[in-house]
Computed example of a mutant assay.
Amino acid sequence: MSLENGLVLDHYWLPASGQAQTLEIPVTAEMAPNVYVHVALLQPHQRDNDRPIRLYGIVPLLVEDPATRLQPQISAPQKVKPEESFTVEVSEKQGKP
């Protein structure tokens, strides 16, 4: 299994078992705004088994970092007339660039 967002951020090897497995993934700031979990399952070749030898899957993992959230504020006139110039000001609520 690997965690990727254009780069491989981390990877894990888990032993295959017949049971469902759980893996706890530590979420870091470099994973925001999203990271993809790539899973590949490779089974041993068995003649009495018709299941696929290779299984693949990709799942997005959405990560929200509150420190990077922007809250834009727009200041514009309530009414405008055709062919009349007007000013629109955009700022951020907490003064972030």
Rank of each mutant, 00 (worst) to 15 (best):
P33A: 08
Y56G: 08
G95W: 02
E64Q: 15
E24D: 11
E4M: 10
Y12W: 15
Q46L: 14
I25A: 01
F86K: 04
A29S: 13
L62I: 14
N49T: 08
N49A: 10
E64D: 11
A20S: 13
M31V: 06
N5M: 01
A67T: 15
R69K: 11
D10F: 00
A20Y: 05
E30F: 00
N5H: 00
A67E: 15
I25F: 01
K96C: 08
G6M: 03
V63Q: 07
G57H: 14
P66S: 14
M31N: 05
Q43M: 09
V39A: 10
Q71V: 05
Y12C: 02
T87A: 08
E64L: 15
P72D: 06
D48Q: 13
R54T: 08
N5S: 04
D65K: 09
A16M: 10
Q21I: 01
P97W: 07
I58M: 11
A16Y: 06
R69D: 03
Q21D: 03
E84K: 14
V27S: 00
E24Y: 06
P15R: 05
P15S: 10
Y56K: 09
A20E: 12
A76N: 00
L61Y: 07
R69C: 05
V63G: 08
Q46M: 15
L23V: 13
H45S: 14
T87F: 04
P66H: 05
N5V: 00
Y12R: 15
K96W: 10
R51D: 14
P15T: 10
V80W: 02
I58Q: 13
I58Y: 06
E84Y: 05
Q71C: 01
L42S: 13
I74F: 06
V59N: 11
P15N: 06
L3K: 01
L3F: 03
Q78R: 12
Q19I: 04
P15C: 02
A67C: 05
A29C: 03
T68W: 04
L23W: 07
T68C: 06
P52R: 01
D65A: 14
L61N: 02
F86C: 05
S85R: 12
D48K: 07
K96F: 15
T22K: 10
A67R: 14
K79N: 07
V37T: 03
P15W: 01
A67L: 12
Q94R: 08
Y36P: 00
G57T: 10
E92K: 04
V37Y: 02
I53E: 09
V37Q: 08
K79V: 14
I58T: 15
A76L: 10
E4N: 09
G18P: 03
R51I: 01
H38E: 09
L62V: 13
G95Y: 02
S17I: 09
E92G: 04
G18D: 07
G18I: 01
L7R: 12
Y12A: 11
L14E: 09
A20H: 10
K79F: 06
M1V: 08
Q73I: 09
E84T: 15
D10M: 03
E83Q: 09
L62H: 07
G57V: 05
E89H: 09
G95I: 02
L42C: 07
E89T: 13
A20G: 07
P26C: 06
A16L: 15
Y36A: 07
Y12P: 03
Y56S: 09
M31K: 03
P97E: 11
V90S: 08
V27N: 03
R54W: 11
H11E: 06
